[in-house]
């Protein structure tokens, strides 16, 4: 249950990263046809980094969960991990 909450947080962080990348153009504080402002550059870097790292973490989580499913439960783990 707690791990599922964490995964949900990662998904939200990924979506927020995408929002940050789009915000300068969506809200309109990056004028069209003009060089990127400091604010835009900051948002693109932070948003892109956030989305990328969150996506990577989600991929690693899914891959590890799939590997555990195919290998079966670990010895000595009475409850195991039932999250997909």
């Amino acid at each position: 249950m707690k791990a599922k909450l964490g995964v949900s947080a990662l998904v939200l962080l990924f979506l927020t990263g995408l929002w940050l990348v789009a915000a300068p153009f969506a809200i309109g504080y990056q004028p069209a046809g003009v060089a990127y402002t400091d604010v835009t550059v900051n948002d693109l870097w932070i948003g892109g980094g956030l989305a990328g790292v969150s996506f990577l973490a989600l991929v690693v989580y899914a891959a590890d969960a799939l590997r555990e499913l195919t290998r079966g439960r670990h010895v000595g783990s009475p409850t195991g991990d039932r999250t997909p």
Binding site: A3, G6, V7, S54, A57, Y61, A63
Partner: peptide
């Protein structure tokens, strides 16, 4: 995977 998630 939980550790990577926590660090992220």
């Amino acid at each position: 995977r939980k550790f990577i998630g926590a660090v992220t």
